[in-house]
Design a protein around this nucleic acid. Structure first.
Length: 752
DNA sequence: GTGGCGTCC
DNA sequence: CAGAGGGACGCCACT
């Protein structure tokens, strides 16, 4: 909800001073917004503007606004004569937007790299293969010499007899490594090309099922292979080991085969052992833990424009690569599992959280979310119009045509042509054109404001309204993101293709995008989020009595903080004070300095330091927690969450002050962020087991760090709302209550 | 491929 | 004295 909405309320509720004076009496969304946002910096500008319109008895100085905003405000007044909060921009020429040819460039993110990336040292040489295996009778044994991996016991399976022998072998083994080869990386769209297995290090088999290049050897059909393997793959009595099994699980689900025996995942083992010290792709792990250089995907499929999909790879090469995958996976498991098993805490995180979560996320991914693409298309064209107008106006002001989307050209116009002051530089020494800088420059000239406006529109259009409809899956009509379980150092998930964890919410125009996230007919969206979870965890970790009391009594924690820091009665905390307290609270979670707080609040550094000192005076246990976290990091080289997830901090002893300071801030932040991640992961597992699996009327469709989104049959909303709340609140027993806010609606925006 | 910027929690 | 707020991903321009 943004300023526009506030303006709308203004019309509805009478006058601004009515709203300000009675902020506390507003209930529901309106009251929430007033208490949370009315006093934030950008808002105060609009407030002041509105005040002028309405002749409220409030002076601008009474609002705690920063110098930058004061400057911007003055300019704002001058330009718009105190009348309107948003410029009406007229005129403009037409430039048709070009959103074509983006899909081709789509690359998997580094965290998802199925088999990519190089480790130190020489890349494994691409090896020539031996004799052809052209008739379906050959055993297909590949006898190749390799610096890293011996492959004499790799078998390629062409006949049902061979397959049955391997099925017996796998069944007898109890535990086996497993891998799939597919035509690509998009788990919803790929086809299964082959499967590989290993029961003993050095011994593996590849079952090709869909190599279809000219002259490809005859293979057992995919249907037949899956039919033979189904009992094994779906059995809960066999332990299956893999590398990123979520992917294999999703691929097999395309063929209605369910992996029920997932016992170990070497990627997750590596992640839990050391989330930041290494990449978690198989090549890196083989190098790090086995000292082996293995065949990379590029070695068999080629790279760049010449890369072919796996079904085009000659079976002999494919078999050597795929069998090695299964072999190495098993070896990695044998190397990593003892390390985990010996550490009770890490083992718990791995066994009780990460491994069970894998399947929960896989289901969530496959559920996908429904998008109203028509709505987004309309938004796109509206944004286009506005962008054209803005750009035209900017060119007029600059007296020349330039690319308003290019930071470099903006830099030339603003700093070289117009000689505006350089207020900040980027890390590489360039004059910055970042938002905060342009905000400030808006006092000097109108152009920076237009650039900002254009950026805002352009961001919404290119990243969201244009892109999301393109990512709707043809078969399901829904968008299926990928969640990455081994990327974020603190234990959080990340999301990509598309990233559903950064859909706008802050501005009114941004929120419109959330209105395009809808429920299927007969269903509603239900959004459940943990209230103030990281602050609550700070209360738990520090044991601070004042903080704990605030939460256990259900008080507004920012108001309580304001009352403590500014030494006033809770009832008389001003919006400005509450806003400052909120900034302090968040700043503490991130390890922010007085300098940072001053910048954030637009106050003097001395004042900011006073606030912080005062805070620590009133919350001594918080101070103590932070000191302890730093000390523990220095002592042990790592910090940990409530559930014993570990984050290594080698930089804590760095001679480089910036790195060391960063490590210290991470030491403070990671236990809080990481514990929050643990808690929501535990909730997801509980909810999956107790609610989702037994019921067809509710599906989990998104996770956004402290929020879970469900698609629920209308008839059972109340019932599920209660259960979700119960399970999320009960996901951890801390010394603070875990409060969960739940809303429902026809779209994601409305569900908040 | 990198840097700059901007979106989210 | 310099630097100064944790964790992600995506788009664009530019090299």
């Amino acid at each position: 909800m943004g300023p526009k909405t506030a303006v709308k309320w203004l019309a509805e509720y009478g006058s601004l001073d009515d709203i300000v004076a009675n902020a506390e009496s507003f209930t529901g969304k309106v009251g929430e917004y007033l208490r949370d946002n009315l006093s934030q910096i950008p808002m105060s500008r609009y407030l002041v503007t509105l005040k002028t319109d309405l002749e409220l008895p409030v002076e601008p100085q009474q609002l705690l606004i920063g110098e930058q905003d004061r400057i911007a405000l003055r300019e704002h007044y001058r330009r718009w004569g105190f009348r309107s909060w948003l410029p009406e921009i007229n005129g403009g020429r037409s430039v048709p937007p070009d959103a074509s040819a983006r899909a081709e460039r789509q690359q998997p993110p580094s965290g998802l790299m199925y088999r990519a990336g190089k480790h130190e040292g020489k890349p494994p040489a691409l090896r020539e293969n031996g004799g052809d295996v052209t008739d379906g009778q050959s055993a297909g044994v590949q006898a190749q010499e390799d610096a890293g991996v011996a492959k004499e016991n790799y078998e390629t399976i062409y006949t049902v007899d061979q397959l049955e022998r391997w099925v017996d072998k796998l069944a007898a083994a109890g535990l086996f490594a497993f891998d799939t080869e597919t035509t690509g990386l998009d788990y919803m769209g790929v086809e299964l090309v082959g499967l590989s297995f290993s029961v003993r290090p050095g011994e593996a088999a590849y079952v090709p099922v869909a190599h279809d290049y000219d002259g490809a050897p005859r293979q057992i059909s995919r249907r037949k292979v899956l039919e033979k393997l189904r009992p094994l793959l779906e059995s809960e009595n066999h332990e299956i080991v893999g590398q990123n099994l979520k992917y294999d699980r999703n691929v097999l689900a395309n063929y209605r085969v369910e992996l029920n025996g997932i016992a170990h995942d070497s990627m997750l083992q590596s992640y839990v052992l050391d989330s930041v010290g290494t990449r978690h792709d198989m090549n890196s792990l083989a190098w790090k833990y086995l000292g082996k250089s293995i065949t990379s995907y590029e070695d068999v499929a080629g790279k760049g424009a010449k890369q072919v999909s796996f079904n085009q790879v000659p079976v002999e090469q494919a078999a050597a690569y795929a069998a090695e995958d299964a072999d190495i996976t098993l070896q990695l498991h044998q190397a990593l599992w003892p390390k985990l098993a010996g550490e009770a805490g890490l083992r718990g995180v791995y066994t009780n959280i990460e491994v069970p979560l894998l399947s929960v996320i896989a289901r969530m991914e496959r559920n996908g979310v429904m998008i109203d693409s028509e709505m987004l298309r309309k938004q796109s064209s509206e944004l286009s119009e506005q962008m054209e107008k803005t750009e035209h106006l900017a060119h007029d002001l600059a007296g020349q045509s330039f690319n308003i989307g290019s930071p470099k050209q903006i830099q030339e116009i603003l700093y070289e042509k117009m000689r505006l002051p350089i207020l900040a530089k980027t890390p590489t020494g360039q004059a910055s054109t970042a938002e905060s800088v342009l905000q400030e420059l808006a006092a000097e000239h109108e152009l920076p404001g237009l650039i900002l406006r254009h950026r805002e529109l352009s961001k919404l259009k290119s990243t969201y309204t244009d892109r999301l409809p393109e990512q709707i899956n043809f078969a399901t009509g829904r968008v299926h993101t990928s969640y990455h379980q081994a990327v974020a150092a603190t234990g959080r998930l990340s999301s990509s293709d598309p990233n559903l964890q950064n859909i706008p919410i802050r501005t009114e125009e941004g929120r419109k995008i959330r209105q395009a996230f809808i429920a299927s007919p007969g269903h509603v969206l239900m959004a459940a989020d943990y209230s103030q979870i990281e602050l609550r965890i700070m209360g738990h970790l520090s044991g601070d009595a004042t903080l704990l009391a605030a939460f256990s009594e259900g008080h507004d924690v920012h108001r309580v903080t304001a009352a403590e820091v500014f030494d006033v009665n809770i009832a008389s905390v001003s919006p400005e004070q509450r806003r400052a307290a909120k900034a302090i609270n968040f700043g503490l979670i991130y390890g922010m300095s007085a300098f940072g707080l001053a910048k954030q609040l637009g106050i003097q550094r001395g004042a900011a330091k006073q606030y912080i000192d005062r805070y620590f005076e009133r919350y001594p246990a918080v101070k103590e927690y932070m000191d302890t976290a730093r000390d523990k990091a220095k002592e042990d080289g790592y910090v940990e969450t409530v559930f014993k997830r570990r984050l290594k901090l080698p930089d804590i002893d760095s001679r480089n002050a910036a790195r060391r300071k960063h490590a210290e801030r991470t030491a403070i932040n990671a236990p809080m962020q990481g514990t929050a991640a643990d808690i929501i992961k535990r909730a997801m597992i509980d909810i999956d087991k107790n609610l989702l699996l037994p019921n067809n009327d509710i599906r989990m469709i998104m996770q956004v760090h402290d929020e879970l989104v469900f698609e629920v049959a209308e008839a059972r909303v109340d019932e599920f709302k209660q259960e979700v709340g119960r399970l999320m609140s009960g996901a951890a027993s801390l010394s603070v209550p875990l409060v969960v806010d739940i809303g429902t609606g026809v779209n994601w925006d409305q569900a908040h």
